[in-house]
Amino acid sequence: MVSHLSELAKHRALLWALTTRELKGRYRGSLFGFLWTFLNPLMLLGVYALVFSVYFRIQMDHYAVFMFTGLLPWVFFSSSLNEGAGAITDGGSLVTKVLFPLQVLPAVKVLANFVNYLLSLPILFAFFLANGVDFTWCLLGFFIVAGVHLVFTYALTLLLSAANVFLRDTKHIIGNLLTLWFFLTPILYPLAQVPDAFRPLVYFNPAAIITLAYHDVFFWGRWPAWGPLAGVAALSLVLLFMAVVIFENHKEYFAEKI
């Protein structure tokens, strides 16, 4: 695992070059260009805000801000998994014709979406100001939550990118699972809306714990629940270890499987 990560660090120039390629290339040639990085989350927010505060009428103060707080990290997570699952299979000649530290490919997908997420945070802060939600020192907790989230996301993406080489169905399955997962995670609704009988189940969902932690540091202005977060961090490390072992054991066969 150490060599896997140190190789990633060694190739950070490459990692960064491909991430910029991914980010710049995404909107290159479009009229608004890089502005889409901000337009996309705004539009997404508009859609959900319309549905849930006008049509469904969820009773909650600053609902739009609350929802946006959970939605942005979810977009990072789900886009990373969705795009990352195909990172190796869609890698084309980079996998089959060039000698290349292959973990860079899924890492690039995660990193690009993470940078996108960070870039959309100013919009979130603007929303806070507009809605009169206060900033507190607990915002510093963001770095810890985001760190755990990043490891969790990279571990899953790495695992899926390797699995998809051998089982091409992975990519399609994951797309649908993510939709289910999204609705099972308290992003669109506050935890209080979940019936009491089901509430303990939420703590079996790492994404829910992470979302709640984001809510804590951003929206509620309090420190996250450290216990569950530490649990997710431990789980993420175990997952990362497994993912690295599986990835490293199979990567020699990626080139011929594609």
């Binding site: 120039a13 490459l14 070059a17 491909l18 390629r21 710049k24 290339g25 290159r28 040639g29 000649s93 980079l94 014709k97 060039v98 290349f100």
Partner: peptide, 20 residues
């Protein structure tokens, strides 16, 4: 390898060179 069609030749030299 790794050329991005939307990038200029200059950008792709850096990209491809890094990959190599």
């Amino acid at each position: 390898a790794g050329f991005h069609p939307e990038f200029s030749g200059r950008e792709n030299i850096f990209l491809n060179g890094t990959i190599l």
